[in-house]
């Protein structure tokens, strides 16, 4: 496929799929896992390591381990080569996550774009998980960048 067709194809995929919600999951937040995570990260702030602290809460990136059931929507077109690699994660912390919270996560395709560098053209697919607590408050947003080599 030449470069112009490839760009057109990517634009078409973007138009069809960005904003599509495709997975829903529920996660229980428990004290032991929250503390174990923080301690393994070398955390020393008692807000994250001491369950008795008045402001005890999950570490900022704790929701990054809450994997969605699906990586991509059903019938998502094959763009780029291979399964893709983990290019990074962005976490927005909107409110503290407390032990006992049940988080309801929805997953959408947030963006699809390409970049060209020394390694050639790479396609970025951004999967966004939004986590809301029992009171429907948005507490965390995680953007995961999947990187695939363009065909």
């Amino acid at each position: 496929m030449d470069q112009a067709n490839s760009a057109q194809n990517l634009a078409s995929v973007r138009d069809d799929w960005v904003g599509v919600e495709f997975d829903w999951a529920t996660f229980e937040m428990n004290t032991d896992d929250m503390i174990a995570w923080a301690e393994a990260c070398g955390e020393t702030d008692p807000r994250f390591t001491d369950a008795e602290h008045p402001d005890f809460q999950a570490h900022p990136g704790f929701t990054t381990h809450c994997m969605s059931g699906r990586v991509l929507p059903e019938n998502f077109p094959q763009i780029g080569g291979g399964f893709g690699i983990d290019g990074g994660k962005k976490v927005d912390v909107h409110a503290p996550i407390r032990p006992g919270d049940t988080l309801n996560a929805t997953t959408t395709i947030a963006d699809i774009f390409d970049k060209t560098g020394r390694s050639g053209t790479m396609i970025f697919i951004v999967q966004r998980m939004e986590f809301r607590n029992d009171r429907s408050e948005l507490v965390s947003t995680v953007d995961w960048k999947m990187i695939k080599k363009a065909d």
Binding site: W37, A38, A40, C41, G42, E43, T44, D45, H59, P60, G61, T64, H65, D86, G88, K89, V91
Partner: peptide, 11 residues
């Protein structure tokens, strides 16, 4: 990767 992000947050 998610642990490396946690290490930075702790720093």
């Amino acid at each position: 990767g998610i642990m490396s992000q946690g290490l930075l947050a702790a720093m």
